[in-house]
């Protein structure tokens, strides 16, 4: 049975939260985590939609540090006021 997009978003949010400050996760990492957990019950398109939910809601933001990542909103080291 297909996993609802909202549920995927919530689960991925938890993964991003745990990883914060330790490893910058990419869209692909989240996709692989969900596919590993749910196998055929989850499609790449669903994961993509769930990431969009995370970003559009402001719970996560995109980062770029030599590669794009999905992170919790925070103040970065370089930022000036």
């Amino acid at each position: 049975m297909a996993i609802p997009v909202e549920q995927l978003a919530d689960e991925m949010y938890e993964i991003v939260k745990e990883s914060a400050g330790v490893k910058k996760l990419k869209g692909g990492d989240l996709t692989k985590a969900m596919v590993a957990k749910y196998g055929d019950d989850v499609s790449r398109a669903d994961v993509k939609a769930a990431i969009r939910v995370l970003i559009d809601s402001g719970r996560c933001v995109y980062g770029y540090f030599g590669g794009s990542s999905i992170e919790l909103p925070h103040t970065e080291a370089a930022e000036n006021q």
């Binding site: 969009r52 970003i55 559009d56 402001g58 933001v61 995109y62 980062g63 770029y64 540090f65 794009s68 992170e71 909103p73 925070h74 970065e76 370089a78 930022e79 000036n80 006021q81």
Partner: peptide, 30 residues
């Protein structure tokens, strides 16, 4: 300095963040 988090809402591309390393001396390009 490189800023990696700035962007427009919903997009992960299209904006390159940049901050002056000397913002007090050159506030116009902070």
């Amino acid at each position: 300095k490189h800023g990696g988090l700035v962007g427009v809402m919903g997009y992960g591309g299209g904006v390159i963040g940049r901050y002056s390393a000397l913002p007090d001396e050159f506030p116009g390009v902070s």
